[in-house]
């Protein structure tokens, strides 16, 4: 998952980014003003936008309005100092998905971000179950046939993304774009390393093939109802 934080107060932006990286396990970019925020959000497939309301150049509401005006379906969490009803109503009506007043609680902020990320992928339950695989996105606990699997942070992020997009073909580029922020060099073979690590750990316990590779196109995590064969046929 990849998140854009638009916040002009640098210290707060850094803290929010650190919280997101540590607790939500996502890639985070920071934009110091509304204009840059809008530019970054327009050019990258973010899964969530954490937006401050009072920003230089373009304020949060303007960013939100333009974003929705361009038809961008990204989840938006607004951070605001003001919690008057009118402000909140205006925000939600402008297309915000959720809001949090400053100063916020770390736990609540993380939970709201996770909920928004989940819903953005069409998930309502924090626990994703597909075949023998169970991914708990809150505790980051992964089980196959009720056996806990120990994964590295990056392996977990790849698996979580695939699990949320289960059944769909996910390209290597998509994975790169959603798992890395701007400051990272993106090398395709990094993904291959994580996928092979995941396969070794999961499929060994499952006793069946869960992650399908479509050569040159990407990967698919098998849906519960599908058999390996039908998934392969469908491609």
């Amino acid at each position: 998952m990849r998140v854009l934080v638009v916040e002009d107060e640098e210290r707060l932006a850094q803290n929010v980014a650190a919280i997101l990286r540590d607790n939500v396990l996502c890639a985070v970019d920071i934009a110091p003003d509304g204009e840059e925020g809008l530019f970054l959000a327009g050019g990258n497939p973010y899964d969530l936008l954490v937006l401050d309301l009072m920003l230089p150049k373009l304020n949060g509401l303007q960013v939100l309005t333009r974003l929705r005006g361009d038809g961008r379906n990204i989840a938006v969490l607004v951070l605001t100092a003001r919690d008057e009803k009118e402000v909140v109503i205006k925000l939600l009506n402008a297309g915000a998905d959720d809001y949090l007043t400053k100063p916020f609680d770390l736990g609540e902020f993380v939970a709201r971000c996770k909920a928004l990320l989940r819903r953005g992928k069409g998930e309502h339950s924090p626990v994703i179950q597909t075949g023998p695989l169970v991914v708990n996105t809150v505790t980051r606990d992964v089980q196959v046939n009720r056996k806990r699997i120990a994964l590295t942070a990056m392996e977990y992020r790849v698996l979580e993304y695939l699990a949320m997009r289960r059944g769909a073909l996910v390209s290597k580029e998509e994975l790169l774009e959603h798992l890395y922020d701007y400051n990272w060099e993106k090398f395709g073979n990094v993904i291959e390393v994580y996928i092979s690590g995941l396969r070794r750990k999961i499929e060994g316990v499952a006793g069946e093939k869960l992650i399908q590779t479509v050569r040159g196109l990407g990967y698919t995590l098998r849906r519960e109802s599908e058999t390996v064969a039908s998934a392969a046929d469908g491609i």
Binding site: R11, N15, V16, A18, M54, A81, K102, L106
Partner: peptide
């Protein structure tokens, strides 16, 4: 009032988030 609230709450948010990050683990 809005600006003052924004400035104060942002400053407080920085302090609180730093503190909570230190406590978290």
């Amino acid at each position: 009032v809005g600006d003052a609230a924004h400035e104060l709450k942002t400053s407080l948010a920085i302090l609180k988030s730093t503190l909570q990050m230190l406590i978290a683990k």
